[in-house]
Design a binder for these strands. Structure first.
Length: 761
DNA sequence: CAGATCATCGTTTTT
DNA sequence: CGATGATCTG
């Protein structure tokens, strides 16, 4: 390629970028934080920067490590980089945190006592193992659920606290219990040559910290590290990035350190705190990297100004956010439609009716998305859409790889490479039913433990297992006979697709399903066929990779993939999903439903001080809308079978009236914040047969505004309370009620403005 | 050991 | 209300 062509390429890379985008792309060495608002073109910036680094010769392709959180994002980034630099992309590491760690560990985990065939346990496997530890320790499972304990362990791991460190700082009975379980759980995992998702990160950090030569190798290999969705990183990931960019075990910069770390994120879209993400990583980036360059991307290329104003207004109610104001030159757009409905059925009918109207106007169903807070909310909506014959797809829910039959098949394959994997063994021993019950299984497992042999070897020789009945012994002989044949086959390294076929046949799994003769079983068989296809595809694609196809490689790959059935864009289907699943997506028309206190924000978030994260979730939802945004809520809703009533979500009220089709409040502080018939703007008479009929009847609303006089508190006001101290107004509700969050303990309280001992500061 | 009935308990979940 | 798990009985 000539020098001219190069220059032309570089020009093309920068063309069409706005000023801050360009600054981020051409940034030289050293840490860079890109604060990228929703829809501000961050992927464009990342991909163009990678291309620019390669194009200018600042980096070779194999010196680039680009990290994302999802496989989908990684794939998209890889594709887009490939469009810019072509085949050279292949040498780059463009993958998820977990995939990158798994790759490092396959090469170096032996230093920690694992084989390269280690098993990766997903959440469910991990929880099962936690449960076994709980049973083992005779912990009362009533008081402490496996889920809660696992969550706590996961939390500790995310903070790089190992079992020992955790035990050092227990302060309650619960924590003592967790400490005990944690210790046993870790021992078991290691003994089984297995890692959970958290381990992939933690063990990588361990390897890098313990072995300077490994640390140096990777830090020298990756001269440029780029991270997407940085606001969702946790502490392990923070540490990992430090080590990969040349931080030493002591935290100081090594001589080979380069600190070429580019992170992209938006603190306003941090919605995974409940999973250990630490928003401080992005908020305090400059504390960790004082010489960091910071670039803000605030121009939005996705939404109307009305939508952006709404998002800006809502997020402004959070404290401690990075200052940021989204803007666009796409125009003002239409007002946000706010609708109050009688109950969730009326809400669903309204959404369905509106969709029909839009489709009549020429909108494609695939341009429409409906977001809700919890999965349970999709049910009513689905019923209604089915009746209205509106095609839809639900994103999320049970994932392909979480289906029982798929996990069973994978467990069979896993046993063939990791004979120590008791969790997988437990899963398949009696699936299909072959007369191996809980008791016999436990006997074999504990025999393996006492004899110090693998579970595979213990089962292979059931006659040596003490206390095992004749029938059980026979069952194990038959089962392991099949496994042995499969093991020999696997040793010959056949195509994974073929091996899987044999597993399904030899194990009797397929036969058992066929014998069921139910529609459900038929569906499972089809899923298994799909898995065989996935394996065959792997065989093909791994053919020309550096390692070549292998069973272990296949297992590792699919362990890190969430679902095989991704969403389809061009099918003319309305898309339904939780707000969490909506991040990173965009739709011309967006419905956010169930905007009620207790639903969204979720009750538990209200109780446990998680309001800011809920608000960020609202921000994410709003900023998905390109053109039209609907906010709906129901006066009543069935919760756990019982009918319950809730106030409209504070998030609705945080959207300025003027941006919505509600009319202005009659007078400041007088009358109701709550809607009444007259407050609904633009009458929409064009409701379809499925519509809810004329929108809300008035009259039910009895609340009055703050009863005149008194202190006028507004959102964001700093206040002082005689008993609770300093706080900030985070909500203003009907009836003169204000929501105040107190800085002393972070608690959020609802107070009557006129009665509570509050003064404005 | 397996199916069946009973009881419990309800977020979100990139990997 | 409905899904999921624990305990009971054949």
């Amino acid at each position: 390629m000539s020098a001219n062509a190069h220059a032309a390429d570089l020009d093309a890379l920068l063309a069409g970028l706005n000023e801050p985008q360009r600054e981020a792309v051409v940034h030289g060495d050293g840490p860079l934080l890109i604060l990228a608002g929703a829809g501000s073109g961050k992927t464009r910036v990342l991909t163009h920067r990678i291309a620019y680094l390669v194009g200018t010769g600042q980096a070779r392709p194999d010196e680039i490590l680009a990290i994302t959180f999802t496989n989908k994002a990684a794939q998209e980034m890889r594709e887009r980089v490939e469009l810019l630099v072509g085949r050279r992309t292949r040498a780059m590491w463009v993958m998820t945190f977990h995939a990158a760690c798994a790759r490092i560990l396959r090469a170096d985990a032996h230093r920690l006592g694992y084989t390269r065939q280690f098993t990766i346990y997903d959440q469910a496997d991990a929880r099962r193992l936690v449960k076994r530890a709980i049973d083992e320790l005779d912990v009362d499972p009533k008081r402490f659920t496996p889920g809660a304990i696992h969550h706590e362990i996961s939390d500790a791991k995310n903070k790089l606290r190992d079992a020992e460190a955790y035990a050092q700082m227990v302060g309650s009975f619960f924590e003592q219990t967790v400490a005990d379980v944690y210790k046993l759980y870790e021992a078991e995992l290691h003994r089984m040559n297995a890692m959970d998702f958290d381990d992939l990160l933690v063990r990588t950090v361990n390897v890098l910290e313990l072995f300077p030569e490994v640390r140096r190798r990777y830090a020298e290999a990756f001269r440029h590290v780029l991270v997407d969705e940085y606001q969702d990183t946790n502490h392990v990931q923070y540490r990992l990035l430090q080590l990969l960019t040349g931080g030493g075990a002591d935290g100081r910069l090594a001589d080979y350190g380069h600190r070429n770390l580019v992170v992209v994120g938006d603190d306003s879209q941090s919605i995974y705190g409940f999973r250990g993400a630490d928003i401080r990583n992005i908020l305090d980036f400059e504390d960790s990297y004082p010489d960091a360059t910071v670039v803000k991307l605030e121009q939005n290329y996705r939404s109307t100004q009305t939508v952006l104003d709404a998002a800006n207004a809502v997020i402004r109610n959070n404290r401690g956010q990075r200052e940021k104001e989204l803007w666009t030159d796409l125009g003002v757009g239409d007002p946000i439609k706010v609708r109050e409905l009688d109950d969730e059925h009326a809400e669903a009918r309204y959404v369905a009716g509106e969709i029909e109207r839009l489709v009549d106007e020429g909108v494609s169903r695939s341009e429409i998305a409906v977001f809700y807070r919890t999965n349970a909310q999709s049910r009513v909506l689905e019923d209604t859409l089915v009746r209205a014959q509106i095609g839809y797809q639900v994103i999320g829910g049970t994932k392909f790889y979480e289906r029982a039959e798929i996990k069973d098949a994978i467990a069979y394959l896993t046993m063939l490479v990791n004979p120590q994997d008791v969790v997988s063994f437990t899963r398949i021993a009696n699936s299909p039913r072959r007369g191996i019950g809980q008791t016999s299984l436990s006997r074999v497992i504990s025999w393996a433990n006492t004899a110090g042999i693998t579970i595979w070897d213990a089962a292979l020789d059931p006659d040596s297992v003490p206390g095992l009945g004749t029938a059980a012994r026979k069952a194990f002989h038959r089962f392991m006979g099949a496994m042995r044949i499969l093991g020999e086959r696997a040793a010959a390294n056949p195509p994974v697709g073929e091996l899987l076929r044999e597993v399904l046949a030899e194990s009797g799994y397929l036969e058992a399903l066929e014998a069921e003769r139910t529609i459900e079983a038929q569906g499972r068989i089809e899923n298994l066929e799909e898995l065989v296809n996935v394996a065959a595809e792997y065989d093909l694609s791994a053919e020309n990779s550096d390692e070549g196809p292998s069973l272990a490689g296949f297992l590792q790959q699919i362990a890190l993939v969430a679902d095989a059935d991704g969403r389809r864009d061009d099918e003319g289907l309305v898309t339904l999903m939780t707000l969490h699943n909506a991040k990173g997506l965009e739709y011309p028309i967006v419905f956010m439903i169930g905007l009620e206190e207790g639903v969204f924000p979720h009750q538990r978030a209200i109780e446990e001080g998680g309001l800011e994260e809920e608000r960020r979730l609202a921000y994410v939802g709003i900023t998905r809308a390109q053109r039209d945004l609907y906010l709906t809520y129901a006066r009543a809703r069935a919760v756990f079978g019982a009918r319950s009533y809730a106030a409209r979500s504070r998030f609705v009220d945080e959207v300025p009236m003027g941006l919505t089709d509600r009319s202005e409040q009659p007078a400041h502080g007088v009358g109701s914040v709550r809607a009444r018939a007259t407050t609904w703007g633009s009458p929409s008479p064009n409701l379809s047969p499925l519509g809810s009929g004329p929108i809300p009847g008035g009259g039910w609303d009895a609340s009055g505004g703050s009863a005149g006089g008194g202190t006028e508190l507004r959102l964001g006001d700093d206040v002082f309370h005689a008993a609770f101290g300093d706080g900030v107004v985070t909500g203003v509700e009907a009836g003169g009620i204000v929501v105040i969050r107190f800085s002393r303990d972070g608690s959020e309280r609802k107070l009557v403005a006129d009665l509570a001992p509050i003064e404005k500061r």
